[in-house]
Amino acid sequence: MVATRQPATRRRRSEEMVDTAGIPPETLLEIYETMCLSKAMDDRVWVLAHSGEIALAVSCHGHEALQVASIYALRRGYDWMVPYYRDSAAALAMGLTPRDMMLAFFARREDSFSGARQFPNHFSSRTLNILSGSSDIATQIPHGVGIALASKMRKEDRVTITYFGDGATSEGDFHEAMNFAAVLKIPVIFLCENNEYAISVPRRKQMAIDDISNKAVGYGMPGVSVDGRDVFAVYRAVQEAAARARRGEGPTLVVANTYRIDPHTSNDPDRFYRDPKEITEQRKHDPVLRFSAFLNQHGFLTEEQDAAIAARVAAQVDEATDYARSAPQPVPEDAALYLYGN
């Protein structure tokens, strides 16, 4: 993944010289490895979808930095994550494994999210505090506000982060949830992943403003707009929003600006609506390459470490694919399971 290779023997410069937003070196490598894992998973499921082994792939390529950094800015395993369907890197950062995800992509009985009932990218985990996603747009945003409301009522200092795309800000659910959360000072972080497209519709046809964070003004909450391909910018913004929420000061809208490198899904012929040259240009700003270059440049990542990470990631993706491929299918007699509680 390293774009500009440095001699393996080079020692890191003094740490004070480099501002890493207070993230310790070993955590920087963890963040990087999670981003690489997400990228490798996306590449694999894309191939599996096009070879017909799985029905559908959704990739978060271009979103890795903002998703992983935003989760690392929270208390993982304590705070709540309310995702939309493009949040697979965030889910990995929360602690889901490639095997968890592959079992869902292959729609196997053992799939821990739903026993092969849900869409594959709609991962969830009660133990990791990840809410199951929705195919409908923006509907998770009020759910996130509700989960945060419950934390507040129970006097916990848990915060909830809810993710959505630029297109979701056009829906009524977004507006109602933003207003509601601001009025009731609910400890929630609204994280808008602006990737410039909602399926085929470019952002300029989705809204008449350039900076999405301006939307916060009308609801009476802070809005910040950051480079979504910059791990540190996102980390700082989410950390501050979380601190504000834990102080009882209410919600923040964080807009992380990036670009959707892959099509909407593996079924989306994106050449219909965007110039391949545009994608080629945006690939130069790939957040995974950018972060690896940073780590390498500042001596946090050696060539050996990078190779070891690449090998670990590849092995994990291979193992997960093989395991899920040979796992048993669900049985039709179980179709009605989980419809009602007692």
Partner: peptide
């Protein structure tokens, strides 16, 4: 249709 939300898995979907 069998009265459940539509499942993703092909064998389950076919059953429903």
């Amino acid at each position: 249709g069998i009265e459940v939300p539509m499942p993703y898995s092909k064998p389950l979907e076919n059953a429903v």
